[in-house]
């Protein structure tokens, strides 16, 4: 356990290095910013047309969170994917360390990217739609975002572990992203969703975190939303535990079958 901080730090540095390679002016200005902002504008516009400024505000908060959380899922799944492409899984198998804190550290880059996406959506959409959200309320939501992002990273890790033997992990991440958009109350009030969809939403990270964030932005206290955040943490822990066991199992099987290079 005394090696955990060092492993965490090195993992965080590696995660940032992975992300920073993709942050060129061309990718940031040509894809990352437009993709995030345009998607949010699309859904907020629909909400604005359907229900005016109140519904637009609801969709804005939902879509900024979705953009951020989705990057956490994808970034964590890519961490696993990159191990495969880099051919480093055999070394991971043979390393004496517990690589859990390393993985945890590598997920941090996703949180940072998620926060940037939130800022981007706010900077572009608030003036466009003439809305205002007090900065203090947004800042109060940041800790809740970090907890929700951690839970979502666990789902990303699980997705990466499930898809490890295949070559289409990122496609599955996209499917998860759309599923969350439909089931987690991003564009519609969660309680207004059909019961079957609510049931799915309850089992996914972000649903409870998003409810809590909406409440805090609207003036609720942390204690008001404690129950929601406990649910979010429990869901994240369950996904994390399953992901951990499955990833370890995948590596054990690879050691038996010798197919680690074929992933």
């Amino acid at each position: 356990m005394n090696h955990w901080p060092q492993l965490f730090k090195t993992g965080a540095r590696a995660g940032w290095a992975n992300l920073s390679v993709e942050l060129t002016p061309a990718t940031v200005l040509g894809a990352r910013i437009p993709r995030t902002v345009l998607q949010a504008i699309f859904f907020v516009l629909i909400a604005y047309a359907a229900g005016g400024i109140e519904l637009a505000r609801f969709a804005l908060i939902g879509n900024m969170m979705h953009a951020a959380i989705f990057s956490c899922i994808v970034d964590m799944s890519i961490v696993i994917e990159l191990e495969k492409w880099n051919g480093t899984l055999p070394y991971l198998i043979a390393s004496p360390a517990n690589w859990f804190p390393m993985m945890l550290g590598r997920s941090l880059a996703g949180y940072a990217e998620g926060l940037v996406r939130i800022v981007l959506v706010l900077c572009f959409l608030l003036p466009i739609f003439g809305m205002g959200i007090p900065a203090i309320d947004l800042l109060r939501a940041v800790p809740l975002f970090l907890v929700t992002a951690a839970a979502a990273s666990a789902l990303g890790w699980l997705s990466g572990a499930i898809m490890l033997p295949t070559r289409w992990g990122l496609l599955v991440c996209n499917t998860i992203g759309y599923l969350m958009m439909v089931t987690c109350g991003v564009n519609f009030p969660f309680t207004a969703l059909p019961p079957a969809i609510q049931w799915i939403g309850h089992a996914l990270p972000m649903t409870h975190g998003l409810l809590a964030i909406r409440a805090v932005i609207d003036g609720a206290t942390y204690s008001d939303v404690a129950g929601l955040m406990v649910s979010e943490i429990i869901i994240g822990l369950i996904y994390g535990a399953v992901a951990w066991k499955l990833f370890a199992h995948r590596l054990d099987v690879a050691r038996q079958t010798g197919n680690i290079e074929q992933f």
């Binding site: 060092q6 090195t10 992975n18 990159l82 880099n86 051919g87 390393s95 360390a97």
Partner: peptide, 26 residues
Amino acid sequence: VYGGERGLYWRLSGRDNIQYFADLYL
């Protein structure tokens, strides 16, 4: 040491690669 070009983190520097594995090897 396995032959070939794989088995390294290409997006990290040479030093960071060694540091990464130093930590994994405690």
